[in-house]
Nucleic acid binder design. Structure first.
Length: 649
DNA sequence: GTTTCGGTTCTTTTT
DNA sequence: GAACCGAAAC
């Protein structure tokens, strides 16, 4: 091995952090200062020093971030890094629980509920407990109350009380719903996202030998985006690092944007108090953005007190200032952005160098239409995750059932695709079959067929026949085969009569088939599918792959975290939209929204456009007027280049 | 009693 | 565009 050249590849700030001595380390890394690079070199340094990669734990915000870091580290020190445990907190928790769930009284083959599943279960609980009422909180609200209680580590009653104070909802009813929800999850052998974290922590707390094992194993624990960890995640980290004490956390309190999910950047701020012997490093030299952009970033975040003071120092030079674009409405905004993108592309820019960011998914609707019309290729990190789309879940339920014949949710979902079979019927048949069903068994298929209503029977027989021919002896091909057979026998037809955009959905299923080929077995794939984000699955979700990577990206600011582009547009810089009106109710000073804006601004390398339309057609075709976002009003005028578009009538 | 269908309502951020 | 509700259809 040639050895890694830390002198050449890192600046002094980065080098100090990457080569930090053992023990607790806090790296305060402002946006664009080479945080990922530093973390990657830290990993390389550890491996080069002889640390067995299997004894390194690397926790990141998306699975893709972990993979990228490991790939880059592999270039430096070779393939050994493949042994590192890397991924999200949920990913790690899942990995531990698949092994040891038995220790806390759970089966190892539990399934993972996505948000949609969780919502339906809660809805059913509310109905069955007779609490259904216009004035009773919706499943969404109930789940967010529960989620906040769990992730902030406080009693459900207290959160329910605080959150529902101005309604006459009895917090005790909320507690009843939630304990019934927990009971049903148990019966379904299913955990939701929070359960993964909670149960992993329970495992470590209650199971001394397991805890000791992992503590011994993880010689080094590295955590990225530490400012967005919630109390459970922080305590998991503390537990795992307690034995060796080699805990390195990296983050930026300015970029903390997940408090609504229980994250608390004060964990980050208080790290030196909790680990008094911690070494603290600051990265402030920004390599990413032109100074005009950084001025705007520094200026906007100055509105937030109580944070580690950092000022981004630019190394790049250029006279250009970010543009503030005044527009009359959303249509003109869409047209302006598309024209500007077309101009950039004509001038030689690649579409993949361009991103359009916004606060909420629906802010991008008009732009999507306009891009389509102008035939500019774009990808969108839509609100619905790839693996949460109805058609993908339908097909995955076949795979799940083939893998785990005791999976009640998969069975009931699959059955409800058949005519004249609904919620009740599916549940009844599941009970009658003894709460298990293997779609690959001819005998069990006959038993099922007998219980189906007439119109469903014929279709099921076709499905059963197709599935039974799948090559059970070649696990690598099984998933792809099952998908193909299921589509041919039934699902293609179902999609074409059920969905308007049938063609697009079938393309997704092709992408799903390709995706399964990455995994050695069905079980391996199903194991992590629910935990993959859209950022993780970017390659899967990409539709009509003929244009390859040459696409403009449309994304929420949240999903753009950690990424960067040459040119960034930010849409709807209007009071009530960005900052969002809902967020302002909770936090009138808009501190978190301001950090979100800071994240948006610092994604841009060369050019930044802030678009501020004046009005919007709301519901019921009423025109609503908006004043410009406080975030742009606060910026000194001379830092922006102002443009007015579309006022010449 | 269940399932299906059609009309109406409302859009924050995500593992 | 999907989630919810009430009414019609099985």
């Amino acid at each position: 091995m040639a050895g890694v050249d830390f002198e050449r590849d890192l600046n002094p700030e980065q080098r100090a952090a990457a080569l930090a001595p053992d023990g607790p380390v806090l790296v305060i890394a402002a946006a664009g200062t080479g945080k990922t690079r530093t973390l990657t070199y830290r990993v390389a340094h550890l491996v080069e020093r002889g640390v067995d990669p299997q004894r390194i734990l690397l926790l990141t915000f998306t699975n893709r971030a972990a993979r990228e870091m490991m790939e880059r580290a592999a270039k430096l020190v070779g393939d050994r890094v493949g042994g590192i445990w890397g991924g999200t907190f949920h990913h790690m928790a899942n990995r531990m629980l698949r092994r040891h769930a038995g220790r806390i009284g759970w089966p190892n083959d539990y399934s993972i509920l996505d948000e949609d599943d969780a919502r339906s279960i809660v809805r059913a609980v509310v109905r069955d407990l007779g609490l259904k009422d216009k004035m009773f909180p919706s499943p969404d609200v109930l789940l967010s109350v529960l989620g906040l209680a769990v992730s902030r580590d406080v009693a459900l009653e207290d959160v329910a009380h605080a959150r529902l104070a101005d309604s006459d909802v009895n917090p005790a009813d909320v507690v009843r719903v939630m304990s019934e929800y927990a009971a049903r999850k148990r019966a379904l052998r299913a955990m939701d996202f929070d359960d993964l974290l909670v149960n992993a922590r329970r495992l470590l707390r209650e199971c001394e030998p397991v805890l000791r094992d992992y503590q011994e194993r993880f010689l080094h624990v590295l955590v990225d985006e530490y400012q967005d960890t919630n109390p459970i995640q922080a305590s998991l980290v503390d537990l795992l690092a307690a034995r060796h004490g080699n805990l390195l956390v990296v983050g930026d309190d300015f970029q903390s944007i997940y408090s609504w999910r229980g994250a608390d950047y004060r964990h980050f701020l208080s790290f030196p108090e909790r680990y008094p012997n911690a070494h603290v490093f600051k990265l402030e030299t920004n390599y990413r953005s032109l100074p005009g952009i950084l001025n705007v970033a520094n200026e906007c975040i100055a509105g937030n007190p109580h944070q580690f003071q950092k000022t981004l120092r630019a190394v790049r030079e250029a006279p250009d200032r970010p543009r503030l674009v005044d527009l009359p409405d959303g249509r003109r905004q869409a047209r302006y952005v598309v024209e500007e993108i077309a101009r950039l592309i004509a001038a030689g820019a690649s579409p993949r160098d361009i991103a359009v960011l916004y606060r909420s998914h629906f802010h991008a609707l008009e732009l999507q239409l306009e891009l389509q019309q102008r035939r500019i290729p774009f990808a969108i990190t839509s609100g619905v995750r790839f693996f949460e789309q109805a058609h993908v879940k339908d097909v995955c339920s076949v795979l799940r059932l083939a893998n785990t014949p005791t999976d009640p949710l998969a069975f009931q979902r699959l059955l409800q695709l058949l005519p004249r079979v609904g919620e009740k019927g599916a549940a009844r048949i599941w009970r009658e079959l003894g709460e298990r069903f293997n779609p690959l068994s001819a005998e069990e298929n006959r038993a099922l067929s007998r219980r189906l209503p007439e119109p469903a029977r014929e279709r099921w027989n076709r499905i059963a026949e197709a599935l039974s021919g799948a090559p059970a002896d070649r696990p690598g091909e099984l998933a792809g085969e099952l998908i193909g057979r299921f589509c041919d026998a039934f699902y293609r037809e179902y999609v074409s009569v059920s969905f308007e955009d049938a063609e697009r959905r079938m393309e997704d299923l092709q992408a799903l088939t390709d995706f399964t080929a990455r995994y050695a077995t069905l079980a391996d794939m199903l194991n992590e599918v629910t935990l993959l984000t859209n950022v993780d699955t970017g390659e899967v979700a990409r539709r009509g792959r003929e244009e390859g990577d040459e696409r403009v990206l449309l994304s929420t600011v949240h999903q753009a975290k950690g990424l960067e582009w040459r040119v960034v547009f930010v849409l709807w810089m209007a009071e009530g939209l960005f900052p969002s009106g809902r967020a302002l109710e909770e936090d009138p000073a808009a501190e978190e929204e301001r950090r979100l804006f800071y994240v948006a601004v610092t994604r841009a390398r060369d050019a930044l456009y802030l678009c501020a339309p004046k009005m919007r057609m709301g519901r019921d075709r009423q025109i609503k007027f908006y004043s410009p976002s406080r975030f742009i009003v606060e910026i000194p005028k001379n830092l922006l280049q102002r443009e007015r578009i579309g006022y010449v009538y």
